[in-house]
Design a protein around this nucleic acid. Sequence first.
RNA 1: GGCCCCAUCGUCUAGCGGUCUAGGACUCCGGCCUUUCACGCCGGCAACACGGGUUCGAGUCCCGUUGGGGUCACCA
Length: 530
Amino acid sequence: MVRTRFAPSPTGFLHIGGVRTALYNWLFARGCGGQFILRIDDTDQTRHRDEALAPILQGFQWLGLDWDEGPGKEVEGQCYFQSQREERYQQAVEQLLESGHAYRDFATPEELQKEREQAEQEGRATRYSRRWMATSEEQCNRYREEGRGEVVRLKMPSDGELVIPDLIRGDVTFAWAREQDHVIRRADGTCLYHLATVVDDESFEISHVIRAEEHLSNTPRQIFIADALGYKRPQFAHLPYVAEPGSKHKLSKRKLQKYMKDREFARLQGEGEWIARQIHKQIDPEAFNPVLVDFYQSIGFLPDALLNYLLLLGWSLDDSTEIFTREKMIECFSLDRVNKAPASFDPKKLEAFQEKWFHAFDPKKKVALCLPFLQRAGLVAEPPDCSVGPQLLAILDAAGDRVKIAGDILHFADFFIADEALEYEQKPFAKRLGSPNARALLGRLRDRLAELDAFAAEDCEAAVKGFVESEGIKMGEVIHALRVAVTGKAVGLGMFDTLGLLGRDSVLRRISRALEQAESLPAGDVAKGD
RNA sequence: GGCCCCAUCGUCUAGCGGUCUAGGACUCCGGCCUUUCACGCCGGCAACACGGGUUCGAGUCCCGUUGGGGUCACCA
């Protein structure tokens, strides 16, 4: 049975690179009819564990990466938190001590440091001399009396090599002599990650360890531990890491300032912040940026789009298939087609996937996705008036691909606010309504629209066209002024759709109001159609 | 610095010895469409890091160089 795992630390954030690793684990397991396990690596900072874990689990749920075992899905008394598995680790340490694969060591940090420095001076590779290794109980006691701390170290082989058959990289060879006698139990008695992860992988019966490349160089010591303990070695697959936009450095949430120099990254971040502001979401840049999954969820990305992008960041099926549903991903994914070189995160391409997915998304579901944004922005009541659903559907229909993510609906807030509350963008307002001429024209158009019986988009179109003809002008000479008058903006949906959507009363009121306010404008630019 | 990994357009990639004057996608740049914007359509720019081998033939195999990256904790 294939069993894979993803082992996040409860840091409060779900990193985009981490999710890709999780995705590959999940896909591999699902594709083999195997199981995917979520284990929490919290041997370190445990203070606010539950608080820091919730957003991570929530991110997995949003993405639809379900786990067969893990928090909330415990199987026969297994515990999925490393912090609570200490007893097993201690047993393992004792076993290693007993079999001679590990030893008690009493060197002080200063002494260790000195050895390292000396080795460096002599140009040797540093390897601990084992000078403070205790070989008997008597010796232990002597060191203890001196007040030395006691750690347990691995007793690594001094010759021979290890060949790791990596499912992505092929055979990777290491020389044992280069490996350090790593500490597996601290002076305070707690165990370290390398020991813990091996013990856990055994007890959860993990068959395939699929993880980031940065773990490749600690694999030898983990294999040493597994062998010494008599465990079956899992198969390994080391993924290249996800790199920064436009660079080959590992993507890290700590280097935001640097990423903000990337135009597209900064633009995405800016749009996200704009949406967050509209919905009154508190934003801490550390916790709200395009490196974190929560960012995308917050502004209305589709999880399928994010998954689709991540899938192709380091893996491909062939020379042409771009769109993958979950089912197709599971069906097609294989480790041997994972690329070996790191792949840079490209926010623009991620957006392109979002656009494609959202374009094809069911209109009614789009309504359901967009509605909460309007509600949080205070534009629509909760629960909504029964007219809102159809209205929103009509707006989305008219908007077409202008709404790329659910939060974009907030760019069309002018359909939801009171006529008296409409705000005008200054520049286009002055440009389009600055001249008395333009105002007179708009006034006459208003009269024409007022005569209409029906006010659907087609009716408005016919009326405006008729008006333009009778005035002997071009469409552009009046339509821009009309747009600014009724929406406050220079750009927006199709003009006639906009009129139909607003309805006669609103349109007439808004034109009158704009005309009034434009009176106080300083006479200046005479607007001509573009 | 030691060890390990990696190397095709700006980016993600296809390519597993001849079908490669290197294909697709994103970006970018023109143009068309058009009441603005978005979409759409048409077209364009753009890459096998370098040097040796092996071979009738190398982007594809081998070696080296260069370059990039990861890792070297009583962090995970």
